[in-house]
Design a protein around this nucleic acid. Structure first.
Length: 504
RNA sequence: GGCGCGGUACCCAAGUGGUAAGGGAGAGGUCUGCAAAACCUUUAUGCGCCGGUUCGAUCCCGGCCCGCGCCUCCA
């Protein structure tokens, strides 16, 4: 299975295969660690994770590099306001970011370089560009890239800069740039600002420079794929291409992958709109990490996703159905026919299982169509549930082979979607612990706190009491216990195999 | 203004030149002491509007309306 993926650069869907024939080298723009990550950030990182997992599932090893931007204007501003060194300020948000990624079951990138630990590499890149006469220094000591020297500029974002390069003087603060579009490689220090001394003068790196320097260092002058949010296409990625290719004289990244922004309740997410949510905001409202992940990847990366709480509730229910099905498979005993049980394999279901697997793979290979891939799984779930129902009343015989094939497809699904085995309770507990420290427990719904206060032992004691009551045909008491538990977020199911419970 | 994307049932959403996946929700039913879970039936002669191409268009072309994104170091 070869993944085919839309390439922003060519505007076409193209097969994605490692240029070295072995490992796919991929660079993804990481976070600027000045605050907690919001769901928009995570939609992008989640789709990059899906891409990586799909590649790995298809047998292609991935070397995944993701930078941490730990110096920029906002960081300097906020750290100064907090009276902290920028490293102390950024480190806690960096840690929080990785906690969040883990909560969302995102595989950790192979290499996670920090911008501030690669200043020499960046300075060297500026020097190379200066040799090429494409970097120049202005009176204040800043360095800029001369885009007029790179005719390809604008190719990625499909912009035509031919008429803009000469004579445009727009920004009065940057009057000494050759062209208004020229971008900063290195910024001269302002008084009191964190600065690095270097061969090209004191100052700090421009934003775009870190990605070029670190991508080249960890992936080489030329590599397979570069990913990021759609907003980064211009100017960030355009600038990366310009400065990298002018320095190395090689194609920087062959394939460009951009994830579209999400909408929240139909509008762009923003603090001023009041529809801005961090992952932690949602966890504190009681939503499950797995459901958040599932919703954020449910709409293919190239489409806008409209994030709504109604949608999140729907996703939670859908996920519960998958888990219930998986549990049903695991709990059912298939030792039906004893000798020669394999002869009792239901061929029709086995074929349906194989077809679902193929449909799942094909959907992912087709530009990561996660919606279609998931539909293939649900089709199979229904077919298998029917078979299991029929088996329960003796109309059908299923073998361990059937069960194993079904479980294998679910496992395959979960290797990419990673939503079935998440320990949601542990993630929520960790979020609540954090909320306690951050003084945000007041926004947590009562049901969630009640559920947390209820231990497994207490739940099982109540279930035992209910069992006795029911045995004595005291259904009123039994139902009261069930209602009480439900109110505290615990769902009870009676079945022939006994009572089952789970936290909602 | 430039570049780009989208408008599919109550909600979310996939999709194909040949007559509409999937999920959630609602209603009815089977099962159950009652529930839950699961399953069945049901909810778009219809895919923003108007033309055109075609034997045939939701899917191709043109126009229009509406929504959205980027063009400002926001993923």
């Amino acid at each position: 299975m070869t993944i085919h993926l839309f390439n922003t650069l060519s505007g076409r869907i193209e097969p994605l295969v490692p240029m070295d024939g072995a490992t796919l080298r991929m660079y993804a723009c990481g976070p600027t660690v000045y605050d907690y990550g919001h769901i928009g950030n995570f939609r992008t990182f989640l789709h990059v994770d899906v891409l990586r997992r799909a590649l790995e599932l298809s047998g292609t090893p991935v070397r995944h590099v993701m930078n941490i931007t730990d110096v920029d204007d906002k960081i300097i501003r906020n750290a100064t306001a907090a009276g902290l060194h920028i490293a102390d300020y950024t480190r806690r948000f960096e840690e929080a970011f990785f906690e969040d990624l883990e909560a969302l079951s995102v595989e950790r990138p192979t290499v996670v370089p920090r911008a501030t630990e690669h200043i020499p590499e960046m300075v060297h890149l500026v020097e190379r560009l200066a040799e090429e006469k494409l970097a120049y220094q202005t009176e204040d000591g800043s360095w800029y890239f001369r885009i007029a020297g790179f005719p390809e500029y604008g190719r990625l974002s499909k912009k035509d800069f031919a008429g803009i390069n000469s004579g445009a003087r727009v920004d009065v603060d940057e009057y000494d740039k050759d062209s208004a579009r020229d971008f900063a490689l290195w910024k001269a220090p302002k008084p009191g600002e964190h600065r690095w001394d270097s061969a090209i003068g004191a100052g700090r790196p421009g934003w775009h420079l870190e990605c070029s320097a670190m991508a080249i260092k960890y992936l080489g002058d030329s590599f397979d794929l570069h990913a990021g949010g759609e907003d980064l296409m211009f100017p960030h990625h355009e600038n990366e291409i310009a400065q990298s290719e002018c320095a190395t004289h090689q194609t920087f990244a062959r394939h460009w992958f951009h994830v579209r922004f999400l909408l929240v309740e139909g509008r762009k997410m923003s603090k001023s709109e009041g529809n801005f949510y961090t992952l932690r905001d949602l966890l504190l409202k009681g939503y499950k990490a797995s459901a958040i992940r599932s919703l954020l990847i449910s709409v293919p990366y190239g489409q806008q996703l409209n994030f709504t709480f109604e949608g999140l509730a729907a996703e939670t229910a859908a996920l519960e159905r998958l888990r219930t099905f998986q549990r049903r498979l695991l709990e059912a005993s298939f030792e039906t026919g004893a000798p020669g049980a394999s002869m009792l394999t239901d061929q029709e279901l086995l074929e349906q299982t194989a077809r679902a697997r193929q449909a799942f793979d094909a959907a992912l290979a087709n530009d990561l169509n996660t919606a279609e891939a998931k539909a293939a799984i649900f089709d199979l779930v229904r077919a298998a549930n029917i078979a299991l129902d029929q088996r329960a009343v003796g109309l059908r015989v299923l073998s361990p082979e059937n069960r194993d094939a079904l479980l294998a497809v679910l496992a395959r699904f979960d290797r990419v979607f990673a939503v079935l085995s998440t320990d949601d309770v542990a993630v929520t507990d960790a979020a609540l612990d954090w909320a306690e420290c951050a003084g945000r427990l007041d926004e947590v719904p009562a049901e969630l706190l009640a559920q947390r206060a209820l231990s497994d032992i207490q739940i099982e004691a109540l279930i035992e009491e209910r069992k006795t009551a029911r045995h004595n045909r005291n259904f009123a008491r039994g139902d009261a216990i069930r209602d009480e538990l439900l109110h505290k977020g615990v769902v009870i199911e009676d079945s022939k195999e006994g009572v089952r419970w789970r936290r909602r």
